[in-house]
Simulated assay, not measured.
Amino acid sequence: MRLLILGGTQFAGRAVAAAALARGWDVTVFHRGRHAAPEGAAVRIGDRTAEGGLAALAEGTWDVVVDTWSGAPSAVRDTARLLAGRAGRYVYISSCSVYVWPPAAGYDESTATVPSSPDAGDVPYAEAKRGGELAVSAAFGDTRSLLVRSGLILGPWENIGRLPWWLGRIARGGDVLAPGPRETPLQYVDVRDLAEWTLDAAEAGRSGPYNLVSAPGHTTMGELLDTCAEVTGSSARLRWTPAETVLAAGVEPWTDLPIWIPPTQEGYGALHGVGVERALAAGLRCRPVADTVRDTWEWFVSLGGAAPQRPDRARVGLAPEVEERLLKGM
Rank of each mutant, 00 (worst) to 15 (best):
R192V: 04
Q187K: 06
T219M: 05
Y210V: 01
V191A: 03
L152P: 01
A138F: 15
L194M: 15
V191W: 02
A128E: 03
P185R: 03
G161R: 04
R144S: 13
N159Y: 15
A128R: 07
L199D: 02
R162Q: 12
L194D: 02
E183H: 15
E203W: 13
L194I: 09
P164M: 05
G155S: 11
R206N: 11
V176G: 08
W157G: 11
L212G: 00
L177D: 08
G217N: 08
P209M: 02
V189Q: 10
V176T: 10
P156N: 00
S150F: 14
A201W: 01
L212K: 08
S137R: 14
D190L: 05
S214E: 10
G174E: 09
G155A: 03
V148M: 12
R172D: 12
E196R: 15
R130K: 12
P216V: 02
W166P: 01
R172G: 11
R182G: 12
P209Y: 03
L163P: 07
R206Q: 14
F140V: 02
T219K: 00
L134W: 07
L212R: 08
L199A: 00
V213I: 14
N211A: 12
A178F: 06
R172W: 12
S150M: 14
S137Q: 15
L186E: 01
G205F: 06
A202W: 00
A138N: 11
E203T: 14
P156R: 12
W197N: 02
E183L: 15
T184R: 08
E127G: 12
R192A: 12
A139Q: 02
L177A: 11
R182K: 14
Y188N: 02
G208Q: 09
S137W: 10
N211L: 13
E183D: 15
G155R: 01
D200V: 02
E203F: 10
R172N: 07
G168A: 11
G168R: 09
L167G: 01
D175T: 15
W197L: 15
R162W: 10
E158K: 03
S145R: 10
Y210P: 00
G205V: 07
L154K: 02
I160E: 11
D200T: 11
Y210F: 15
E196P: 02
G205E: 06
L163F: 05
A171F: 04
V189C: 15
G174H: 11
A202N: 05
H218W: 15
I153N: 02
P179C: 07
G155M: 04
G174K: 09
L186P: 01
G132R: 09
D175W: 13
G151P: 04
G174P: 09
R182Y: 13
L147C: 01
F140W: 06
R169F: 09
R149H: 00
F140A: 05
R182M: 10
T219A: 12
P181N: 09
S207K: 07
A138E: 14
G217S: 05
T198N: 11
T198W: 00
D193C: 08
A135H: 05
I170H: 08
A202R: 03
A202V: 07
F140R: 08
I160Q: 14
A202D: 03
L147W: 03
S150K: 13
W166M: 05
A201R: 00
